[in-house]
Structures are given as structure tokens and as C-alpha cells.
Simulated assay, not measured.
Amino acid sequence: MPTTTYDNTGVPIDDEGFFTDPARWTEPMAEQIAKEAGIDALTDRHWIVIRFMRDQYAAKGTGPTVRVLGKVSGVSVKELYQLFPKGPAKTAAKIAGIPKPRGCI
């Protein structure tokens, strides 16, 4: 299994770069992952989505879809695409240190 290093800590990832052990994630890692995804700085609105993703993963075993994010997280679908232009659910999941949500291609 491949590994990568964030915040001076080695973490196991899958072939697409998603964490395979979300418990190894820390908030300082999120900033580094975001930069790799082309997001220069995480705002409070980004953190709402990131924490929502982690909470949903903890509760349901998968991250939410964009539709669920837009309806339940408090951030509209339009804003999600502004915050995470390369695909909100997939990019937010990667930054949040959870596996790729089901249904994401």
C-alpha cells in the first residue's frame, strides 16, 4: 500500500491519494493536501465542509455526495463548486482525510 507524508507524518493512502486510515489525519495536514489540490488557503467555509465530511464519514462509513453536501452542510452547491472547483465531494474528501465517497468517479 502506498504512503505519503503530511505534517512530517507518514500516512497510508490508496492509489488515488485518499487516506485509507482517516484516524491518522490531522487538521494541519488538511492545509498541505489543499495546496496539492490547488486551494491556496482554507477559509472558514472550507472548514465547514471538511468537518461535515468527517462527521458524515464517522456516522455512515462514507462521505456525502455533492447533493447531500448542498442540502445539509449549510453550504450551497454553487458555493461548493467555488470552494472546491475540481469536484466538491471528491476534493473535500481528500482534504478531510477520508476515503473517496461512493459514487465519485
Rank of each mutant, 00 (worst) to 15 (best):
K100M: 15
D14L: 10
V75C: 04
G103R: 10
G74W: 08
P28A: 15
A34M: 11
G10S: 13
T3M: 07
A30D: 11
K100I: 07
K94C: 05
V68A: 14
T3G: 05
V68H: 12
M53V: 07
Q56K: 13
Q32V: 14
Y57L: 05
M53P: 00
G103A: 12
R67H: 13
A37W: 10
F19P: 02
V11L: 15
M29Y: 12
P101F: 08
Q56M: 11
Y81V: 00
I48G: 03
A41N: 12
P85A: 05
G38D: 08
R67P: 05
G38A: 11
N8I: 10
W47P: 05
D44Y: 11
E16L: 15
D14N: 11
P88A: 14
I95C: 04
Y81K: 02
K90L: 14
T26M: 12
A34T: 04
F52R: 01
I105E: 13
K100T: 05
H46R: 08
W47G: 07
D40I: 10
P99L: 04
E27Q: 15
A30C: 14
P99G: 02
L69W: 05
G10E: 14
I39P: 02
F84G: 00
P64N: 10
E16W: 13
R24H: 12
V77H: 00
G97N: 07
R24S: 14
K78I: 00
G74P: 04
A89K: 07
V11G: 09
A58M: 04
C104M: 15
P28V: 15
M53A: 04
T3C: 07
G74H: 05
Q82W: 06
R45D: 05
P88R: 02
A37K: 15
D21L: 10
A34W: 05
Q82K: 11
K71G: 10
Q56W: 10
R54W: 01
V77K: 03
P22L: 09
G38H: 11
E31C: 13
L69K: 05
R51T: 08
T65R: 12
Q56G: 02
A30Q: 12
